[in-house]
């Protein structure tokens, strides 16, 4: 059963999120990014023009995403 708004609502409440928590009922992000859903969690760093800068999986691997953003931003 695909996730709907109620799934996003429940998850956002559970983690206390104030940022967007979005259900993806069509697997659109998995189909439209290098992340294929085989390993959780997945991450993708996105530029302001919605370019996919870097995708990676697993916990504790966030540095590469921040590095990709900093490089893109010229920092």
């Amino acid at each position: 059963m695909p996730p709907l708004g109620g799934t996003a609502t429940a998850y956002a409440t559970a983690i206390g999120a104030t940022y967007p928590v979005l259900a993806d009922p069509t697997d659109g992000v998995a189909k439209g990014s290098p992340w294929n859903g085989a390993t959780l969690p997945g991450h993708c760093a996105m530029a302001p023009d919605m370019t996919i800068l870097k995708c990676w999986t697993g916990h504790g691997e966030d540095t590469q995403g921040y590095d990709a953003i900093k490089a893109h931003a010229g920092l």
């Binding site: 059963m1 695909p2 996730p3 996003a8 940022y19 979005l22 697997d27 859903g37």
Partner: peptide, 9 residues
Amino acid sequence: SSSLFLVGV
């Protein structure tokens, strides 16, 4: 299920 992805922005 591959149809249960959530995306946190």
